[in-house]
Design a protein around this nucleic acid. Structure first.
Lengths: 173, 173
DNA sequence: GGGCGCATGTAATGAGTTACATGATTGA
DNA sequence: TCAATCATGTAACTCATTACATGCGCCC
């Protein structure tokens, strides 16, 4: 239901059509989530059927018609419920990238160090991108919170990886 | 392919049957991953078909027969390849719990604080469980690494949540 | 005698992705 | 004129989950 929460939350702010929602999420929220087009269209359709949003087809000249969605009062109630559920929950993070670490002793430590340095470079790049000046969409309170969360998370990741690499260098696994 | 890596890595250490592998993963690796029984059995079957492992049916008295898996040299090669791929990769963490934060201004801050404190309690509990004395399976080098990773991650999460709660208290969103 | 642990599996379902299909407008 | 952007959608597929089914041994 987190995708529904996301879409409803954005529609609360402003009526939008599917393409627009998809674009916003994948451009301005890429650092924390994503959604594919068919998924977005599909969920919007279902929410319209459930009465959470209204669907109005709009034609602008000869352009392809677009379906503009507007949140209903029922949708607002669902949003309020989903938001409260989301805020009080915590889901354990599963880092699939960790699996390999369990077997790191299966390869020579010099090689492991090289591979982990490659991983570190990707991580560092992600961190740098995050710290680049960003769009105005991120100046809103909530968005800043999420941005800060990612920043802290990535910093912790880098610190940890550096620690692992240091320990491997000292053969202190 | 991370599940394959996991199963191969465990089989490298010791021949095991499906039930045993499933049990080990869900008991001793619950803090970082999980696997359901049908998934485990299914992957093992496929790996046997691919020749990565051999499957030998063993009967112990009148008990249900069990299929013991042993890694082959081909499986070892696949393991080595998967391990290297895994170590040099990094996948961006997606925290679905963050979505709600984007819309935190939609509810009164006192209520948001209460909800986030509930979230913090869950987080703290997870952290405490992680720091409890743990099974001997975790004394191996790689496992200790993953355990340490989780610890660092959870600490960063708690620190960040505390920060958010403090800012909400000061109405400084 | 009833429930739990051991041991394996099948079938249905679900969430989401990829690949594909369509067609108009806009800019180089 | 060719590619990119706008705009929506269907169909097939993957991965993993839940629910279901089976049957023995063991302990209370």
């Amino acid at each position: 239901m987190n995708r529904e929460l996301l879409l409803l939350g954005l529609l609360r702010h402003k009526d939008m059509h599917g393409y627009e929602l998809h674009e916003f999420i994948n451009r301005d929220m890429a650092f924390c989530t994503d959604i594919k087009k068919p998924t977005a269209y599909n969920i919007l359709q279902k929410m319209a059927e459930s009465g959470w949003v209204t669907e109005i087809e709009e034609q602008d000249g000869n352009r392809p018609p677009r379906k503009v969605y507007q949140i209903t009062s029922e949708g607002e109630q669902v949003f309020q419920k989903l938001l409260r559920e989301n805020l009080q929950q915590h889901h354990q993070a599963r880092f699939t990238d960790d699996i390999g670490l369990a077997f790191i002793d299966a390869i020579p430590s010099e090689e492991a160090i090289l591979l982990l340095k490659k991983r570190r470079a990707i991580l560092q790049h992600e961190f740098d991108v995050l710290n680049r000046p960003h769009s105005k969409a991120h100046s809103r309170g909530g968005m800043k919170l999420i941005l800060e969360h990612q920043r802290r998370h990535l910093q912790a990741e880098i610190d940890w990886l550096d620690d692992v690499i240091t320990r491997l260098t000292k053969e202190d696994i």
